[in-house]
Amino acid sequence: MNTFDTHTTIISNEKVAEDHYLLRCECSDIAKFARPGQFIHVMISQGAGLLLRRPFTIYTVNGREITMLYQIIGEGTKQLSKMRREASIQVLGPLGNTFDIAKNPEPAILVGGGAGIASLMLLAVALRAQDTPTIGLIGAQHQDRLLSVDDLEEIGVKVHIATDDGSVGHHGFVTDILTDLLHKNDLHQPTIYACGPHGMLAAVAKITEKFEVPTQVAMENRMGCAMGVCLGCVCPVYIDDKRIEYQRVCTEGPVFNASDIAWEIS
């Protein structure tokens, strides 16, 4: 295994949208081995009663540096957002499995809801590096919470936007755009890659099952160890037609085939 626990310091930690921050740090070993879909487990502070690390997807890799794009959702991420340059953090990773892009999708369709788009950025880079035509469907509550549009467009991803309040792009859900896209039926060999709120993923899975389009989803869950030990982060996965087993998001995942997840009980 190539997993490292790196003491490092923050290079920058900037607000990029309402409640969302982009953190840069140097983690050369993690940067070297990081693959699309993988994540890091970050110790923010052992003071103030925060015991556990927090899992974050790896947003980008630049030489010896990695970035993470994260949303403030609790006390840990709130504390993290207040940390400045030079503050120290401990970063464990890279962890988890990766997206599969071997089958030359045409096009690849990325579906990201909220901070979920962060899990698809390294993937987008890898897809574009092999010249895969790539479409990005980005959903946000409203304009001020929209993420990653420029980053994706810069590498040649064709971006469509949906917002809950219609402040920018389609007024509604990304899944509406996805349905329209698949209805047009002019796609050669599409593959869907999705990450976002659980409800969105379940909806994506339902749509793509109907259109029989292969779909990979990056799941999220509360995590304890992120190393496969505590069994805290499981999700229910069909291991055959009838039998379901709880698999670890940190180890068997975070990427699963959407058709393998038992959405009805997850």
């Binding site: 509360r222 805290g232 982060c233 379901i244």
Partner: peptide, 12 residues
């Protein structure tokens, strides 16, 4: 097979 999720929760 273990319990359904959520299985863990951080507390102070």
């Amino acid at each position: 097979s273990g319990n359904p999720m959520n299985r863990i929760m951080e507390t102070p």
